[in-house]
Design a protein around this nucleic acid. Structure first.
Lengths: 383, 383
DNA sequence: AATTGCCACTAGAACGATCTACTAGATCGA
DNA sequence: TCGATCTAGTAGATCGTTCTAGTGGCAATT
């Protein structure tokens, strides 16, 4: 009997308390709680009863100090306010919980610096692994460091060049190639790409798909039609209007993603034109809004559930075997044909469309609408 | 010198390693790393140098075993795919990081059962506190249990009746009262409430605000105009059409939130009517889309930054003093007057509007549009 | 009767920090 | 010169688990 009998400072019930109450050793209690088959049913029930009665709560922190496995993973996202990525985060978290894992959430707002800080932080918590969509401009060296630390890491959606790493995403090349072919098959010849972004893999791959599509139709890509704007509604809105002002304007715009497509659709609407009839538009991602806008957006769906499931599978595989070769998983695409991509307008109509776009700069309309766009810009600064 | 010299099993660098390298004790290293003022600068630098050279990584798990504070908080959200709540989660996470805290994310999909499981899980990780928007139908007893466990907890956005608990949210009553007064001031007399939901505090409070607004104008609320539909686009869409078919249809719809308002706007558009001129609509939350739809949605903005900042402040306060009285913080609202709420249409026009709504059931339009709505329903099943 | 194997369980050392209670030595005032 | 005070640092217990290397006892086998 020790000196300060019963005067626990923290009040926490521990294995020792259960052991004492049940009249067995601490080790036995530990084995019971971990469902060890070496413990006979009678003892098991007896110990569990006492654990329950005392209101015992398992202390994973203490356990992982010993086992060196925390069952925590860092979930790093470049922008959780992007509806597509919010869906993926939800899917990943669901899948993690199914595997009795829990996630530290880090929204990096596309800042490599915040991302690095977050990674360093979760490392101090000794996470079992990291699942991330890398911030724009991420140095592959960050991943190299993770690998050097032997910290399992899986990328999703956005890939990173120059490094062997587990990855899950859609086939961006094939997806955009498909869109381009579709627009070409409808009769379009002047097809713009809105939201080309060489800073991220999705941007590069979709651009390549677009270029390949044009080339196989014998069309030389026109640099004027390839717009490297940030993937925000406002930028896409303004970019499309500028495109329609060109001497030889596009009749279709393949947009980097749905958000960009929404911006383009708003532009067409703001010019008093008809989406689809006057200007064809395609998106990418098939976020929830896409099917609801009128007209509904023709886009490329990638299942968030698939991404979540595969990301977790890859991580668990990597945790089990750190020396396995890197795996790159392509989840299947699903082309959603809706109403924003139709056959191109007549030459006469194209002239009228261009005039509407040019008028945008001059009419009083401008002030009011720019106001609206600025208002929007404020709302969207962080998208 | 012990028997198995240098053969560390885990490979992890610990305080002992640094101590040995720097020729000081483990305790000194610990004090250095925690910036204790008792350590002179010379020693400090010397120790830090060795820590750096060895590539030391602080082990928070081990530390919190001793200190009983993990710097982890559980962040429980009823639906992270709702853009408004995604924004709030992002804001909370930012604010937590500012305070050197890290968050376990749990998306409960409005299921009290998943919520309970998640809470039980994070408890095993000995989190310092919980920040949550409770799932629909949450038993206040869950919070009572948290309090009994002395686990700090802050609710946001959604309140819980019958329990004293820290809370931060907008003044839902005042906000909806304001909307109702505004619609009344424009001349509306038949105002519907789309998305009344008695299962959540926001639903009840906004309903009360609506009723109060009508009553102070001497109008008896018409139960036919109060639609208790789930806050999804599809449900709101269908509800509004049914409302417009009434013998004495509403001229305005105050919607539970922006998502609901978008559904209502789509309905008006699908009927070939003009949003604002034919049917006035207001939303609630001011999500990013709200300013971008055409016409832009008149709504009530609640700053996500404010909610995030206050939620974290309340939690830290509660951690510091578990016996402090519960605090309820109301963040200020910001009424965004845009273009979806205008003066009511003429009686003749109202008849035409009603006819358009009635025609919805009969025309071939129905098939195509119901198809679209079903498609939407699929997209949105989990919203 | 001795050996073997198995069952049910256990003592005590880890894991990597922190914290309490100390000490050795320098400095200072009387 | 002596005790008091201060500075700089330390030994060792501790947090709540898991894990290694056992133990004692019983039944079956040789």
């Amino acid at each position: 009997m020790s000196i300060s009998e019963g005067a626990r400072p923290t009040g926490r019930i521990t294995l020792s308390d259960i052991a004492q109450a049940a009249g067995v050793s601490r080790a036995t209690v530990s084995l019971v709680l971990r469902n060890s088959p070496t413990i006979p049913e009678r003892t098991r029930q007896h110990v569990l009863q006492h654990a329950e009665a005392l209101g015992y709560v398992y202390n994973r922190g203490a356990a992982s100090l010993r086992t060196d496995s925390t069952h925590i993973v860092g979930l790093v996202v470049h922008d959780i306010t992007n509806p597509y990525f919010a869906e993926i985060v939800a899917a990943i978290q669901r899948e993690l919980i199914n595997h009795r894992l829990v996630a530290f959430l880090g929204d990096t707002r596309d800042s490599p610096e915040l991302q690095r800080n977050f990674v360093d932080t979760v490392r101090e918590y000794n996470v079992d692994g990291i699942i991330m969509s890398p911030a724009q401009g991420t140095d592959p060296e960050l991943i190299a460091r993770l690998q050097q630390w032997r910290l399992p890491c899986v990328l999703f959606s956005r890939n990173l060049a120059g490094i062997e790493v587990d990855y899950v995403g859609g086939d961006n090349f094939a997806g955009m190639l498909h869109h381009t072919r579709y627009l070409l098959s409808l009769g379009h010849r002047r097809i713009a790409l809105v939201g080309a972004n060489k800073m991220i893999s999705t941007g590069r791959e979709r651009l390549e798909g677009y270029l390949a599509g044009l080339r196989e139709a014998g069309i030389t890509p026109d640099p004027q039609l390839i717009i490297p704007c940030p993937p925000t509604r406002v930028d896409a809105h303004n970019s499309l209007i500028r495109l329609l002002q060109l001497a030889d304007p596009p009749t279709a715009a393949a947009c980097f993603n749905d958000v960009t497509a929404f911006g383009a659709m708003l532009a067409v609407q703001n010019l008093g034109l008809k989406i689809g009839q006057d200007v064809s538009i395609t998106g990418y991602d098939d976020v929830a809004e896409a099917g609801l806008w009128r007209p509904a957006l023709t886009t490329q769906r990638i299942s968030c559930e698939d991404i979540g499931r595969e990301a977790v599978r890859l991580l668990l595989r990597r945790i089990a075997d750190r020396n396995a070769p890197a795996e790159r998983v392509m989840v299947p695409l699903d082309f959603k044909v809706r109403q924003t991509a139709l056959t191109p307008p007549s030459p006469a109509r194209i002239t009228a469309i261009r005039e509407a776009a040019l008028a945008w700069e001059q009419t009083g309309e401008q002030a009011r609408s720019e106001d609206a766009v600025l208002d929007a810009a404020q709302d969207l600064r962080r998208q």
